[in-house]
Amino acid sequence: MTDHATPHEPAALAEAPAGTPAEAATETLAEAPAGTPAEIPAVPGAETPAETPAETPEEHEARLARRSARRRAAARWATATLVFALTGTGAALAVTAPERTDLPGLATPGDGRYTFPPLTLPPLPSGSGAPDRTGGKNALHAADLRYLLLPAPKEAGGSLTPALYPVPTTSATGTPSASATPSPTASAPASASASASASAGASPSTAPAGQAPADWVTCDAILADQRDPAELRALLLRDACRAATVREWTASDGTRTQIRLLRFGASFESWNVFSSLRSDARPNALPGAKSTSHSAWDTVEGVHLDAQESTAKGAKGTPTGRVAYLCASDLVAVVTMTNPDGVPDAAFRQVVTLQSDLLA
């Protein structure tokens, strides 16, 4: 234990002699009017903070000038950022909005393919279904034969509007036949057989929007395309071709395309004609014809294909004539494309593949 008093004891203040700083501070606090801040006396030895010198007019103007410059710099950067953002957005829209092939430097060189409208299948008569791809009892196409032909592309003046087909009113057995049996005298080209549409029951009012219906022609109109038609004529008589139609166009690149469709009463009859055409046919468009490989093509299930080309080459280095024979159930299609400068590979493959899609 110690006898020393602690600093917090009241006796310390009481014992302080008069005139000491503690007494002076107490007296000053006591004399301060109520409600006014008490003036704290300066403590001896404490440093008094230096007063801030008054700002001169020149310094004030300089400070305002610096502040104004900072604001202008911030506004310029904000404007530049906004301009860059708008420019980037506009460039992105300009690149993504148009087709890639329409952009300079990104356009793919044309390979000869055409622009077709979206393909649609015609409606089937009531109670009819799609043909059986296995070649069974129901392996017959019930749709209107004219609407199973590929439409003309944009490059040949065709419309890009999807076709709207009329509702069929007859069954497959009631489909008009251009020629029940081939006529030996009807060997005129298809373009000269327009009168057959009247006897076939074709009506201009049934044309789908965006394209004209194909022409009904006699079955033996295909004989005009052959250098030796006698054997094919006998085959058409034996297997009884039921109906035929054709569509032709000439594209802007000079390539002429003709597609013929022949309908038979059974799958084995169409197969007989298909087999004879691919092995024995001698089309006028293909002098010195030879078979060509199509193993890399996207073949369509249920459609048999055989492709041939002429040995003569055009200025483009491609064959001047190409022919494809297709067989799908009861239908046989013959696609013929000719061009003195050469038929583009891509165009031929495209037309054959799309025609196969319609038949499948």
Rank of each mutant, 00 (worst) to 15 (best):
P123L: 10
T161Q: 10
L119H: 07
P98R: 03
L140Y: 07
D144P: 02
D111N: 15
N138G: 03
G157I: 11
L140I: 13
T101V: 09
F116I: 11
S128H: 09
P168V: 04
A94T: 05
D132A: 07
Y114A: 14
T120D: 01
K154F: 14
P168A: 06
K154R: 15
T169C: 04
T170F: 10
H141G: 07
R133D: 14
P168D: 04
A85Y: 02
K137G: 02
Y147S: 04
T101Q: 05
L149W: 04
A107D: 13
V167M: 03
Y114F: 08
A85E: 05
R133C: 04
L86G: 15
A97T: 15
T173S: 15
T108M: 07
P125C: 10
D132Y: 02
P122N: 02
P131Y: 06
L86V: 15
L119P: 05
S159H: 04
T79C: 05
T161G: 00
L86M: 15
R100P: 03
G135S: 02
D132K: 00
T161H: 02
R100S: 06
A143N: 04
P122R: 05
L121F: 01
G157W: 13
N138R: 07
S159A: 09
P117M: 12
T115V: 13
A85K: 05
Y147I: 01
P117Y: 12
P168W: 04
P109E: 13
G112W: 03
G110M: 01
L124I: 09
T101F: 02
P168I: 05
A172I: 02
L140N: 12
A92T: 15
A156H: 06
P117R: 15
G136K: 00
G127S: 12
D102W: 12
T87Y: 01
T108C: 01
P166H: 03
T81E: 03
L119M: 08
A94I: 01
T134I: 00
L148V: 11
P131S: 08
L160W: 06
L145V: 13
N138D: 15
L149Y: 04
F84D: 06
T96E: 06
T79E: 11
P166Q: 01
A142E: 02
L140F: 05
D132G: 05
R133Q: 14
R133E: 14
A143Q: 15
Y114M: 10
D102H: 04
E99L: 10
S159V: 11
G110N: 14
G158Q: 12
G90P: 06
V167W: 01
T134D: 08
P166M: 02
A130P: 10
H141E: 06
A80F: 04
A91M: 14
P153W: 04
